[in-house]
Design a binder for these strands. Structure first.
Lengths: 97, 97
DNA sequence: TTCATTTTCTAAGGATTCCTTAATATACTT
DNA sequence: AAGTATATTAAGGAATCCTTAGAAAATGAA
């Protein structure tokens, strides 16, 4: 099973209209290091630990779990749900239980 | 940021009423290795790579992304949504977009 | 409680993977 | 085509994981 993180990370970054360098500086990296690491994550060469995944997700405005979502429908659900208000999300969860 | 995986893994295993050894044998491990690794994952000593996380999630009947979900409400949503039929899930996603 | 068994946890080191550096490749723009 | 911006790659030191071996908790019966 391949990790969905590379593709999800790349598409989330594109959607946020950021270059790898812009993202890397938002994360507080040096130019030199940063783009290499992000490239390695997006190409699946290496995998970030959770703390790094969380930082990237925050910078890109998606829930961390989205980066690990191997199911496209659940991924879309996560994105949509993360944009609901607290109350709306509560209701939605209630209605499904 | 701490990884949610240790706690989510443990609670999912408990819910499935499996011991660490039972889970480890379902994953095809030797007894000796298996329980040690799962313990290390559940105590946060070490982190599994994605392929291993996926195997464990499958064995426990939860979506992989659930293991990486740092938000309790989104986690509950993922669990509930993963139990919907394909059609119901489609509808739900549609209704939120 | 005490003993026996099950279940879970931990330390240490070899094995594996990551992060940094330096450089190359690819994609735009003029 | 040249110049610039963006993305990718190889290599090795640094960090993390996986296996082994054993010990610690937890559970349950006598």
């Amino acid at each position: 099973m391949q990790s969905p993180l590379p593709q999800r990370l790349k598409s989330a970054r594109k959607l946020a209209k950021l270059t790898q360098e812009q993202l890397s500086t938002e994360l507080g990296f040096d130019r030199s290091h940063g783009t290499a690491r992000i490239s390695q994550y997006e190409t699946g060469k290496h995998a970030p630990d959770f703390a790094m995944a969380k930082k990237m997700a925050d910078a890109l405005g998606v829930p961390v779990a989205y980066l690990y979502c191997d199911d496209d429908k659940l991924a879309a659900l996560l994105l949509a749900a993360s944009r609901l208000s607290k109350e709306e999300l509560d209701e939605l969860v209630q209605s499904l239980s």
